[in-house]
Design a protein around this nucleic acid. Structure first.
Lengths: 125, 125
DNA sequence: CAGTATCCAAAATGATACTG
DNA sequence: CAGTATCATTTTGGATACTG
């Protein structure tokens, strides 16, 4: 029995880890927002529709921890904190953009298929 | 005040919907597995390390509903059911592969940064 | 402004037992 | 084999109140 070329399906493979990393509701959106340039906490909060303060803080901390985002605190009053993608963080933009492009091209099809499927189910019920 | 070129951050934008669609623990992995060819339920279950029967069924049903996967039941005994990506499902492979490539290239960096960050935190504590 | 601390609700996932 | 049904649990996320 030969083994697979590689095993993205085994736990602890890189893909799996990435999924754990970006597979939450906010990470991808926040990286996307920061892709347009460094921004302050409040700006990101306003831009990413629906994030709570808690989730924004938590997600940014996680990204900082992983070296994808740099956090700069200016010793001013009132406080100013700026977030920016690091060079590694920048590299994430491209694959995420590919996903975004896919979404723009196909999500309507998906929703169409979904409606058809649900209608069929209703007819059966 | 000009508006943004497009708003992937607003609820109900395509990107947001895609994230809702694939942003769970199993969808991406299962699509990846099916990318290697049509497979039976049990094969997928064995290949995707850690999926429970329940989650596999649930995820496959969702993908079928959205027109990304086709489910074929053979009237045999014991039952045989084959899952395959639809043409639209196939198109998802490319952006997902981009993400996979990124993971293979950068996840080690991420984990390194994470260790550094955590060590620093410990020293402070 | 940019957080932190708590508490709580809801959603996602897992374990287990059973079936055509 | 390929599911379904149910229950328990683990995560996640949101609301709210408070602070340097």
């Amino acid at each position: 029995m030969t083994h697979l070329p590689y095993d993205p399906y085994n736990r602890n493979c890189p893909t799996r880890k990435l999924l754990d990393r970006i597979g939450d509701r906010w990470t991808v959106l926040i990286v996307g927002a920061l892709g347009e340039g460094p921004q302050r906490f409040g700006e990101i909060a306003r831009r990413v529709d629906g994030v709570s303060q808690k989730m924004l803080t938590q997600t940014l901390r996680g990204l900082e921890r992983d070296g994808l985002v740099r956090r700069t605190v200016f010793a001013e009053m009132p406080p100013r904190v700026e977030y920016a993608l690091t060079p590694v963080g920048q590299t994430l933009r491209e694959p995420l953009r590919a996903l975004e492009d896919w979404a723009r091209e196909y999500m309507a099809d998906i929703e169409g298929a979904r409606d058809v499927y649900d209608d069929a189910a209703v007819n059966v019920a």
